[in-house]
């Protein structure tokens, strides 16, 4: 077993500096790397480029990094629900690149899988395709989209072990598996770091080869963005 375990979030984020490009898992506030984000706030690194489907809310998730003006550029598919984000975007402090959600996932996956670029039909004929190479396959038009290049990927899983194997829960899975191994260093934080041999190899979602560092996360808030319920009849 190649040991990927580090003892805490500080060790997990060693080597992080200003002006780096990060991938951060999560959809809305579900499955976000809460511990890594909190530590990035503490480290005070800035000029960051963040690849993440969303930008958090004002006081949680990536919103915390925005509050401290640590992000220079966001690459996302949807960025509502965040007043500070809107203010920084409109004032020109924050550069924002909006891309289709499936393209975001696939540009991560391409980096993970060793493809320099992929062709997708998403965005053809729209401003998203402006300035990009397009090509026809079997009578349909596609846009060339490049694999992301990132310094760190911060992902969050439900369970993991010292070998770096990961299992995700529910829709908190989202972009997390696609970002593993898609950056120079992948840092995984888990709700439960279990002893080696406990996880069934048949049920591993991401094999440890895609993860460089893994640590036991602490104090997960797991905030719900839209609490919707039905009445018991």
């Amino acid at each position: 077993m190649i040991n990927k375990k580090v003892s805490n979030v500080q060790d997990a984020l060693k080597g992080v500096t200003s002006n780096m490009t990060f991938m951060l898992g999560g959809f809305g506030l579900s499955g976000i790397p809460e511990n890594a984000i909190a530590e990035l706030v503490k480290l005070g690194v800035n000029g960051l480029t963040c690849i993440s489907n969303n930008a958090g809310v004002d006081d949680f998730g990536l919103g915390l990094l925005l509050q401290h003006k640590q992000i220079k550029k966001m690459i996302s598919s949807y960025v509502g629900e965040n007043d500070e984000f809107e203010r920084q975007m409109l004032s020109g402090e924050l550069d924002v690149e909006l891309i289709p959600q499936g393209t975001l996932a696939e540009r991560c996956r391409a980096a993970q899988a060793g493809f320099p670029a992929i062709y997708t039909p998403a965005g053809y004929g729209t401003e998203v395709a402006e300035g990009k190479e397009t090509r026809e396959f079997d009578g349909k038009m596609y846009v060339l989209e490049h694999a992301f290049k990132a310094d760190f990927a911060f992902v969050k899983a439900w369970k993991g072990d010292a070998a770096g194997n990961l299992i995700f829960k529910g829709t908190a899975r989202n972009f997390n598996p696609n970002m593993c191994g898609a950056a120079k260093i992948t840092v995984a934080e888990v709700e439960e770091l279990v002893p080696l041999g406990i996880l069934d190899p048949n049920k591993i979602h991401i094999p440890g080869i895609f993860v460089q560092r893994i640590f036991q996360g602490e104090r997960y808030e797991k905030r719900i963005e839209q609490r919707t319920v039905r009445q018991r009849s």
Binding site: G28, T171, A172, I224, E225, Q226, R227, T228, V229, R230
Partner: peptide, 15 residues
């Protein structure tokens, strides 16, 4: 009510 799970949402971020 009471059964909401932060790890099970839809694309509208609803439980």
């Amino acid at each position: 009510e009471g059964d909401e799970d932060a790890d099970i949402i839809n694309a509208g971020k609803q439980t």
